[in-house]
Design a protein around this nucleic acid. Structure first.
Lengths: 88, 88
DNA sequence: ATAAACCGCTACGAAATTCGTAGCAAGAGG
DNA sequence: CCTCTTGCTACGAATTTCGTAGCGGTTTAT
């Protein structure tokens, strides 16, 4: 599964998640992703841009239309997680 | 995000995906996950069992009810990926 | 009963990924 | 100028994953 392989790289899902609301700068993303190291973050952003899920605009990094499609499928998962985590 | 952290470990999603239809043996899972090394596979299974998403029965490894709930949210993502991948 | 095959899993060194920190070049503002 | 912020690179250390070998146990075939 190509997608799973891509998403299971560290911070990949977190990036998509944090770009959902509004464009974010590099450093903004960094903070929101538990202070991910800039090298990994940059690598991940390159990968996500290469497959056109994320793009860079003047406002910062943001989701492409395709990226948003993916996010829409990712959101239920995140929502479900909110209810699930406390049960641990 | 605790769930994202868990799922973004190698093979985690693949395991859930492959347990969806029927219980699988250790070695069966191994093949289906692109010949993941037994050490990682075992580590991942331990983790997934610890949070009770997966359990071990006489028939092999299988999803718990909670695991299935998660899978139900994961499936749309996989389905979407099928349509998406060709566009690369 | 013995061999052959399959099972779950451990061991362990090599390879790849990620982390953490430091810091540079470029642009904005004072 | 000087300072601040931003995007990003560098690089060694720490962690994760890989690949392969193999052990002990159970079933199947001979």
């Amino acid at each position: 599964m190509v997608l799973f392989d891509l998403l299971s790289r560290r911070w990949a899902m977190g990036i998509l998640w944090n770009l959902a609301d509004e464009p974010r700068t590099f450093r903004d993303l960094q903070e929101r992703c538990g202070s991910a190291s800039p090298s990994v973050l940059n690598t991940r952003l390159k990968e996500l841009r290469q497959v056109e899920l994320v793009e860079k605009t003047e406002g910062g990094y943001t989701l492409t239309p395709t990226g948003r499609e993916l996010f829409d499928r990712l959101e239920p998962l995140g929502d479900w997680a909110m209810d699930w985590v406390p049960t641990l």
